[in-house]
Simulated scan of single mutants.
Amino acid sequence: MRTLLKNIFLAEDDTDDVFFFKLALEDISNDCKLTVFPNGQELINRLQETNDAPDILFLDINMPGLNGLETLGLVRELSVFESFPVVICSTSSNEASIRKAKENGAGRYMIKPSDFNKLHDMIERMLTFDWKSHCTLKESEEFVIGG
């Protein structure tokens, strides 16, 4: 059985998306701790001042203030988070956004589904993914999840 990442940070401004993320997470495991940030700046502030680093970050691409791609760039500038698992989340499959996410160091680009069961499966997949071997993945490995 794969290890489940349990300390999760989510930067998401849409309350419905947060609700469904929480619901899926509760179904995946009661042991997970979710901390939600309404924008990228609050997430960056927390990462700069905390000793309680998360296991994984989920960043919505469209947020007020710092968007997900800008936030990702700032996360990667923090040396402790330069190879940390980050998943960019978006309803869009725009090739330019996907390319920027990959160039800025995202581990995966998750296209948010409208179906709850698909969302559940995608989140579970990201929480059980072997991120330690991620750096050895070949270029052909799947970067975009969903769509």
Rank of each mutant, 00 (worst) to 15 (best):
V86M: 06
E103K: 12
D52C: 08
R2G: 00
D16Q: 11
P54D: 12
L57Y: 09
L34H: 06
K6E: 14
C89E: 10
F19T: 05
I28F: 05
I28D: 04
R125T: 08
L72P: 00
I98M: 11
L119T: 01
E139I: 12
E82P: 00
I28G: 04
R46T: 13
F58A: 05
T136R: 10
H120D: 03
A96Y: 07
C32V: 15
D60L: 09
H120S: 07
F129V: 02
K100N: 01
D115P: 00
L69E: 01
W131E: 02
N62F: 05
D60F: 10
K102D: 00
S90D: 05
E142M: 13
T128Q: 14
M110A: 03
C32K: 08
N67V: 02
P54T: 11
E82I: 00
W131T: 03
P54G: 10
N30A: 12
F143D: 05
S29L: 06
C135S: 13
F58D: 03
E12D: 08
L66N: 05
C89G: 05
F20T: 07
P38R: 11
S92K: 10
R108Q: 10
I44R: 09
E139W: 05
W131K: 06
D55C: 10
K102C: 00
G146H: 12
S92I: 04
S97G: 00
Y109T: 10
T3H: 15
T3K: 15
D27H: 14
L72T: 05
L25H: 07
G105V: 02
E42A: 15
T3C: 04
A53Y: 12
E141Y: 07
F129Y: 15
E77N: 14
S83C: 02
I28Y: 08
F129Q: 07
S97K: 03
L66S: 02
I61S: 02
L43R: 12
F81G: 03
S133H: 04
G146L: 10
A96Q: 12
L5K: 15
K100R: 07
L119Y: 10
E95S: 13
G147S: 14
K6C: 02
I28V: 11
G147I: 04
D27V: 06
N94W: 01
T71Q: 04
D60V: 11
K6T: 13
G146V: 11
K33I: 06
S93W: 01
M110H: 09
I145K: 13
E42T: 15
F37R: 11
E42H: 12
E124L: 15
V80M: 06
L23C: 01
Q48A: 09
F9L: 03
G73Y: 01
L4F: 09
G40R: 09
K6H: 07
L10D: 05
C32G: 02
D60G: 11
D27R: 15
L4S: 06
E139F: 11
L119K: 08
R2E: 02
A106F: 04
P54C: 12
A24E: 07
I111N: 09
E42W: 04
D60Y: 11
